[in-house]
Design a protein around this nucleic acid. Structure first.
Length: 695
DNA sequence: AAACTAAAGCTTTTT
DNA sequence: GCTTTAGTTT
C-alpha cells in the first residue's frame, strides 16, 4: 500500500496523527472519532512507508478483545501475519518480556501466573496461618492490588509507615504473600507489571537492550492506565521518546480499580515537547445524541476541553420513558425492540440493552424471553473461569511446575482422594519444617515412615502425577486426555461439564504447554463476540469500545445511575456521569432511556426517582413518554401457533426461497415476515400466501 | 470428610 | 431474593 492509499479516508487531524512518527504524541480521541483507525494506520505507516521493522513497534492495550481487534486490523493493513509482533495487553507483553529476563530478579523463567482465585487462596491460607479472620481476604486482596498498581511493594509499604491507614497486621500479610509467591515461583497479575518495572529500573543494561529493540511505543485507552503501567511504558520510551498515547479523559470509568486519569497530565509533564492532537469529529451518532451526550459530560469539572461534532443530521429524538416498576420497564423495552425489528430496518444484533448493575439483567432477560427475542448476556462467568477448566489448567500447571503449591492444592482432592483439609494441613506443616514444596514433601512422606494410612492416600496421587509429569513432552490434546483419564477426572466430573472440557481440548491443538497455560491465565474474558442475530445485554462498563444502531439504557434512576455508593463522593459521581456518557455515545441512530418509579432491589421494594443525569439532557433533544401504554401481561399475538417460526426456510410460488424472520398475529390469522433474497422482506398472511416449508 | 443448615453479604471489572 | 461462606452435624 502506498502513502496515498494509506492516508485515504482520514480527516486532517487523523492524518496528522498518523504522520507524526517521531517524538511523544498525545492523541485526545473523543468517542466515535476513529481512534482505532488512527492507531492501526499509524502502525502501518511506520512499517510500510518509513520502513520501521514491525517487530520494533510495541503496541499495548488493556483487554484481549482490543488487542485482538488491533492485531487483525494491522494484519490486514500491512499484509503480514501478526505472529511475533509486539501487539497485546500490558499483561501479556509484560509476561513475554519477563519470560526472557526474569531470572535477573530471582524468579525462574518458567514462572506461573496466578489468577484472582489463586491469589485469594494464597491470602486465605496466610490468614489461617496468622490466625486472622479469614473472611477478610477480599479486602486484603484489593488493597494489595491497589498498592501494586502504584508500585508500592511490601517493603516500600513498611517504610512509608506514616500513612493514616497503615496497619501492621496487613503489612505482615502483604509481606508474607509476596514471599510465598516467590517461593512458588509465581506472579500475580499485578506483579507482571510491577516486576517488569523493577527489572528495568534496577538493570539499565536490560533496559538499554529494549530501548534498542523497540523504536516506537503506542498505548491505547490511555485514560485507563494505572501508575505502574504508565511507568513501564515511559521507562521503555525513555531512550527514543517515540511514544504515542491515545485516550479520552471523558471515558475513564475504571478509577475504582486503580486507573489514573491523571496519567494524561503526567504524560504532558514527563514529555513536555509532546505534540497534542484532538480528534473531535464523531463518525457514529446523530447530532441529537451527540448533543445530549455533550450536555451531560459538560457538567464534569477538570476536563480536557473538547467539542465533538458530526456531519450526520439530527435524527430521532432521544426517547425517555418512566414506568411503574422494573417489570413494565423490561416489557416496554422488549416491545420497543420487537416493534423496531418488525419495521425491518434493524436485525436483533443491532440492539443493545445497557444497565448499571448485573442484577438488572434478570428482569430484562425474562421479558425478552417471553417476547421471543433472541439475546445474549455479555459478561457473567467466562469460559476460563469455569470450575472444570480451572481444574484441568491447574493439573497442567503442576505438571509444568511441580513447585506450584497453590495449583496443587486446587486439584489434590478433585476428584476425591480422601485428602481433605486436615491432611493437607499436616502436609503443609511438614513442608514448612523442611522448607520444601508441597509436592516434594509428599514424595518424602511416601518414602519415609509416616502413618501407613496417610502414606497410602498420598502414594497413589504422587504416582499419577509423576507419570503425568513424565508425559509432559507429548502433544497437547493427548496430554489433556491422559490427565482426564489417569486422574479419573472425566468419570468424576458432572455430565454437563464434559462438553466444556472437550471444547478446551480441541482448542489446545497445536499449542505448547506454556502457551496454553498463559492464555488460560491471562484470558479471562468477556471476549465473546457481540451482534450476530441476538440483542446484546451488558453493563455500561462492558460496552465501552462498542457501538450499536439502537441503544437502550435501563434503570436511569438515582441510586442506580448514579449508583448510591457513589452519590456522596463528588469524584465518584463524576465517574458515574462518565459512565452514562459512555453509554449514550454508543448509540448510532436511536437512544432510549428508561427508568421505573418502584424497583425491587434485593428483598425490598424501593421508591425511585429518575436520575439527576436525565435532567442534564436539554428537553429539546428528548421525547418524553410519561404514561406508558403497556400491561405486563402478554397479548396472545406473541405466541404464534404455527410451525413457521423464525429461522425456518420456506418457498413462495412467486418469490422463491426465503427465510422466516418472525411470525405474529392471532391463531386464525397468522402473519409471517419472510426475507427473500430476490425481493427483500415481505409480510405475508399464512392464510393466503401458500407457503411451503423446506427442510 | 461430606453433607447439612444458618448467616451474611451484595457496584462496576480486566488481567 | 439469591448466592456464597461459616459453622455444625452425621
Amino acid at each position: 500500500m502506498d502513502k496515498h492509499a494509506m492516508l485515504n479516508g482520514l480527516n486532517p487531524q487523523q492524518r496528522d496523527a498518523v504522520l507524526y512518527a517521531n517524538g511523544p504524541l498525545l492523541i485526545l480521541a473523543g468517542a466515535g472519532s476513529g481512534k482505532t483507525k488512527v492507531i492501526t494506520h499509524r502502525f502501518a505507516y511506520l512499517t510500510n512507508i518509513l520502513k520501521v521493522p514491525a517487530t520494533s513497534i510495541l503496541a499495548m492495550t488493556f483487554t484481549n478483545k482490543a488487542a485482538m481487534e488491533m492485531k487483525e486490523r494491522i494484519e490486514r493493513l500491512i499484509g503480514k501475519s501478526h505472529k511475533g509482533l509486539w501487539i497485546g495487553t500490558f499483561h501479556a507483553l509484560s509476561s513475554r518480556l519477563l519470560r526472557r529476563e526474569i531470572d535477573r530478579i530471582g524468579f525462574s523463567r518458567d514462572f506461573v501466573i496466578y489468577d484472582e482465585d489463586d491469589s485469594y487462596n494464597l491470602i486465605r491460607s496466610i490468614l489461617r496461618e496468622f490466625k486472622m479472620h479469614e473472611a477478610l481476604y477480599k479486602g486484603i486482596a484489593s488493597r494489595i492490588t491497589s498498592l501494586k498498581a502504584s508500585l508500592i511493594g511490601p517493603r516500600e509499604f513498611l517504610e512509608s509507615e506514616n500513612g493514616f491507614d497503615f496497619d501492621e497486621k496487613f503489612a505482615r500479610v502483604y509481606m508474607r504473600y509476596q514471599d510465598k509467591l516467590r517461593e512458588n515461583n509465581a506472579l500475580d497479575f499485578d506483579d507482571l507489571i510491577m516486576h517488569a518495572v523493577k527489572l528495568f529500573e534496577r538493570y539499565s543494561d536490560v533496559l538499554d537492550k529494549y530501548h534498542k529493540e523497540f523504536s516506537h511505543i503506542m498505548i491505547d485507552e490511555f485514560q485507563d492506565t494505572n501508575i505502574a503501567q504508565y511507568r513501564l511504558a515511559s521507562l521503555l520510551a525513555g531512550g527514543h521518546r517515540n511514544i504515542c498515547v491515545v485516550g479520552d479523559d471523558d471515558q475513564g470509568i475504571y478509577k475504582f480499580r486503580g486507573a489514573n486519569v491523571g496519567n494524561i497530565l503526567t504524560f504532558e509533564k514527563d514529555f513536555p515537547e509532546c505534540r497534542l492532537i484532538r480528534l473531535e469529529q464523531n463518525y457514529r451518532s446523530t447530532q441529537t445524541i451527540l448533543n445530549g451526550a455533550s450536555s451531560v459530560i459538560a457538567r464534569n469539572p477538570d476536563r480536557k476541553p473538547k467539542k465533538l461534532w458530526t456531519e450526520r443530521d439530527k435524527g430521532e429524538k432521544i426517547c425517555c420513558f418512566i414506568t411503574d416498576d422494573e417489570d413494565e420497564e423490561a416489557h416496554y423495552i422488549a416491545r420497543s425492540i420487537r416493534g423496531l425489528y418488525l419495521k425491518g430496518k434493524y436485525s436483533y444484533g443491532d440492539f443493545a440493552v445497557l444497565y448499571r448493575t448485573n442484577l438488572q439483567s434478570r428482569v430484562l432477560e425474562e421479558a425478552l424471553r417471553v417476547h421471543g427475542i433472541p439475546y445474549r448476556v455479555i459478561g457473567g462467568v467466562s469460559f476460563y473461569q469455569r470450575r472444570e477448566i480451572k481444574d484441568i489448567v491447574s493439573y497442567l500447571k503442576v505438571i509444568n511446575n511441580p513447585k506450584d503449591s497453590v495449583s496443587l492444592k486446587r486439584i489434590i482432592n478433585y476428584p476425591q482422594r480422601g485428602i481433605g483439609d486436615a491432611t493437607i494441613g499436616r502436609i503443609e506443616d511438614e513442608a514448612k519444617k523442611k522448607d520444601k514444596s508441597l509436592f516434594e514433601t509428599m514424595k518424602c512422606i511416601v518414602s519415609g515412615n509416616a502413618h501407613p494410612k496417610l502414606k497410602e492416600k498420598i502414594r497413589d496421587f504422587v504416582k499419577t502425577m509423576e507419570e503425568l509429569i513424565a508425559s509432559k513432552g507429548i502433544a497437547l490434546p493427548g496430554l489433556l486426555w491422559l490427565i482426564l483419564e489417569k486422574t479419573g477426572y472425566l468419570k468424576w466430573v458432572e455430565e454437563e461439564r464434559v462438553e466444556n472440557l472437550m471444547e478446551f481440548i480441541n482448542s489446545s491443538e497445536g499449542k505448547d504447554l506454556q502457551g496454553l497455560i498463559d492464555t488460560a491465565s491471562l484470558f479471562t474474558g468477556t471476549d465473546e463476540p457481540h451482534g450476530g442475530n441476538s440483542v446484546s445485554l451488558m453493563t455500561l462498563h462492558s460496552v465501552k469500545g462498542l457501538e450499536f444502531p439502537v441503544v437502550f439504557i435501563a434503570g436511569v434512576e438515582d441510586g442506580l445511575l448514579p449508583h448510591f455508593h457513589a452519590i456522596k463522593n463528588p469524584e465518584e459521581l463524576y465517574e458515574e456521569r462518565r459512565l452514562f456518557y459512555v453509554g449514550i455515545t454508543r448509540a448510532k441512530d436511536i437512544l432510549v432511556l428508561s427508568g421505573a418509579r418502584k424497583r425491587r432491589i434485593y428483598a425490598s421494594l424501593q421508591e425511585q426517582r429518575s436520575s439527576r443525569f436525565l435532567r442534564e439532557i436539554p428537553a429539546e433533544y428528548c421525547h418524553y413518554i410519561e404514561r406508558v401504554p403497556v400491561s405486563t401481561s402478554l397479548s396472545k399475538d406473541f405466541f404464534p401457533s404455527s410451525p413457521f417460526v423464525a429461522g425456518v426456510r420456506v418457498r413462495h410460488p412467486r418469490w422463491g426461497i426465503g427465510v422466516v424472520r418472525d411470525s405474529y398475529g392471532e391463531t386464525d390469522d397468522i402473519k409471517v415476515m419472510v426475507n427473500f433474497p430476490s425481493v427483500g422482506i415481505k409480510r405475508l398472511s399464512l392464510k393466503f400466501a401458500n407457503l411451503e416449508m423446506l427442510q
